[in-house]
Design a protein around this nucleic acid. Sequence first.
DNA 1: ACTGTCGGGACATCCCGTTAGT
DNA 2: ACTAACGGGATGTCCCGACAGT
Lengths: 196, 196, 196, 196
Amino acid sequence: MAKGDISKEFIIEASMPIFNTNGYNGTSLQQIMDKTGFTKGGIYRHFDNKEALAAAAFSLAYKKMKAAYFEAFDASDAGAARLLKFLELMKTFLLRPPVKGGCPILNSSTEVDDTNEALRKLVKAAAADWETIMIGFFEAGKQQQQFAPQLDATKEARFMIASIEGAIMLCKLHRNAEYGLAAIDVLSERIRQLQQ
Amino acid sequence: MAKGDISKEFIIEASMPIFNTNGYNGTSLQQIMDKTGFTKGGIYRHFDNKEALAAAAFSLAYKKMKAAYFEAFDASDAGAARLLKFLELMKTFLLRPPVKGGCPILNSSTEVDDTNEALRKLVKAAAADWETIMIGFFEAGKQQQQFAPQLDATKEARFMIASIEGAIMLCKLHRNAEYGLAAIDVLSERIRQLQQ
Amino acid sequence: MAKGDISKEFIIEASMPIFNTNGYNGTSLQQIMDKTGFTKGGIYRHFDNKEALAAAAFSLAYKKMKAAYFEAFDASDAGAARLLKFLELMKTFLLRPPVKGGCPILNSSTEVDDTNEALRKLVKAAAADWETIMIGFFEAGKQQQQFAPQLDATKEARFMIASIEGAIMLCKLHRNAEYGLAAIDVLSERIRQLQQ
Amino acid sequence: MAKGDISKEFIIEASMPIFNTNGYNGTSLQQIMDKTGFTKGGIYRHFDNKEALAAAAFSLAYKKMKAAYFEAFDASDAGAARLLKFLELMKTFLLRPPVKGGCPILNSSTEVDDTNEALRKLVKAAAADWETIMIGFFEAGKQQQQFAPQLDATKEARFMIASIEGAIMLCKLHRNAEYGLAAIDVLSERIRQLQQ
DNA sequence: ACTGTCGGGACATCCCGTTAGT
DNA sequence: ACTAACGGGATGTCCCGACAGT
């Protein structure tokens, strides 16, 4: 990796938690300058503008979050077991998220608008990616005859994502894991109900 | 109502959708000046600072949202029926929310931090208020023997709120009601399951 | 005294220490509003503008300072004795001035310029008034044959005022009476030298 | 000297007379922008805030004043002769000060308070520096047996500084050198008296 | 006599982005 | 590849003053 690429990665890595914690509007280049030690010119060498940097930071945040999820899956697990394991993992993430600031999709979703189309597209893609993964889990469960064949995997996936995101939001707001644990528990119950 | 109070209400009413759409950091006093026709001096006459105005705007937004909810409840309905009606209402709100910009709790939750303690408290209180209302619905259902007496109303309420907020988030992000409808449907199913 | 006059006096009395401590530019009407409990309109009922109020406050400050000086003079004292008594009084005033903020002439002199002609005239008049008083003391000493007839009273008065003001300035700056005591002591010495 | 340093010096040089004439509160960044041709961004590049610029301006003002003093001293002069020469110089400075606006110590002393601690420290240090210099003159006179060995150099220095500053103040206020000349003359007399 | 209301502008500060230079 | 330097503008806040109303 060339020197420039190292710097670029370094800037993204350093700015990611700032963006994910303070939001796009709440983050200034000055904060990133302070953290990285680079000057503005050095940063703009690698990114056209603030939004491009924010987009890169978001991508990294999602990548890290996703990696934290997959890290926890046992290769032998599949279908329902994997889903339950995933939900258990979520519980620990409610107050101690794998990326500082919590779920980047949630954090970005309220701030992106028509003035941030590039970033917006990325967030949508990330959400879609996550959905695809979850659908895969449900489909795997169907193939293993854990779930009924008529189970609507897309619906279940979206429901699960929505509930988890909402749970994260409540925990962050109240600064109390209790508010989200309830939701995760119900989701686990549902997975078990759907089996048999 | 005195002249000043009218102006104050007017400013709150006008700034509410701006704050609820663009967020706290994304909203400038200039935008509020443009919308209201007031100058900064006129605005600061009624609010100590931007946060105070944002707080008032949030309160109004939540009040309007809550009113829209209650407006839809039939006085004769109670317990499970009221919950199901509420969920039906939610479906229509996914893309056409009663307040512009969508659920103010969701919108604010990602942006409030330690620098906005006053606003933060309000958002927390609103979330708690909503939770209390939902708990009341479940408790009413228990009293009418629609739900089993051992049903954990708090857990159900938190789960429902989390799922709804997550659903709203997904719809807003994708600009497509489909992503949220799935969640609402599952919630309705669950209410029916909990009955009998 | 009519109600309005009482209010006027009250406002002057309350704003005087603020102006004398923070200076003209450093004092805002808000501070005076807070201290008096009046609103801006109430204040402007009695004063055309900020400068007019500052002028009134200055006059009061000088009046109080002058009163504090005369209060200490024994009616029987005159000439040199009175001058020495005055210098003793000055020593105690160096750190505990009779009006909060210290000598209003000194405080105002650095801030008045061509944009404050009205205030400027007042400060000049106050300085001239003080000078006249001091000249009177020296002249009285001459008449009592304490001082030589060829003593230049004006020169001595101006010198004494300059030294005292400079001493006050140094004490205020260093927040230490030592710096000014030296000057006062030399002045006392000189008075004694001039006698015989 | 790098380009930036030139700009910085230029800004300090340009803002110094403004600060020294109008005071800290009476000086706006706009005035400095107008005078320098720099924009706020360009100014803030070199100074963290207004106070930092004011501090730099004060330091320059004092440096210039001090330089003007020393420039006038003949290398061969020392002790009493140097003091008398200094007082002669003061006379010409009463109305035509070496730095526009007059003595920066006097000008700043009335305005610095607890909100300007950094600036305050500088002004105190300048006053102390001047005092040290004056003490040196008196001590030199003692060593040359111009003054009695028991002469209190510190006391004389403080007295002289106080009188000079007070004289400057009176001249500035009355816009008339007469008021200060009296004081300087007496000081000269005293130096001659202390000799013998 | 005094309050309430509002205008209009100034203020210091912060911001993002560009360019010259090395 | 990166820094230093600067522009130009927006931000929230404060400030003085005017005026209607009572």
